[in-house]
């Protein structure tokens, strides 16, 4: 199964996404901020990255630029509580943009779509 890296500074949110993606059979890796996330991309070679934007230190959009420089094949899904970042030019590099919600179905669908994975039964 594809490997997914979740970069989010909120412990509970990471746990939420981990459980949701593991239930679908993905291999899940976590990072607490952009810097740690970039390390994971180099070491763990994920297929897709679920990237939060509002994070201390290196934020999501800066991280996105660096991911792009590092590995152009990895798929990135921006996952933010703010819809407004979509207006930021940099966010267009991402393969998808999902506004955080209690229902992770949209995020899961976005990941499947960018990876070209079939809908799980």
């Amino acid at each position: 199964m594809p490997r997914i890296l979740i970069i989010d500074d909120d412990d509970n949110q990471r746990l939420l996404y981990r459980e949701a993606f593991e239930a679908e059979g993905y291999d899940v890796v976590e990072a607490r901020d952009g810097r740690e996330g970039l390390g994971c991309i180099a070491d763990r070679r994920p297929d897709a990255v679920v990237l939060d934007i509002n994070m201390p230190g290196l934020d999501g959009l800066d991280t996105l630029k660096r991911i792009h420089d590092l590995d152009r094949h990895v798929r990135v899904i921006l996952n933010s509580a703010y819809a407004a970042y979509r207006e930021q030019f940099v966010s267009w590099i991402a393969d998808a943009y999902v506004v955080k919600s209690s229902n992770t179905a949209e995020l899961q669908a976005a990941v499947r779509s960018v990876l070209g994975v079939a809908t799980p039964n």
């Binding site: 949110q13 939420l16 509002n54 509580a81 703010y82 506004v99 955080k100 919600s101 209690s102 229902n103």
Partner: peptide, 21 residues
């Protein structure tokens, strides 16, 4: 409104997500 909605949406997403679990 933007700041407050951001601060509310994050915990709400977590609460809703875990409630579903």
């Amino acid at each position: 409104v933007a700041r407050v909605s951001h601060e509310i949406r994050n915990p709400l997403a977590t609460i809703g997500g875990f409630a579903r679990f």
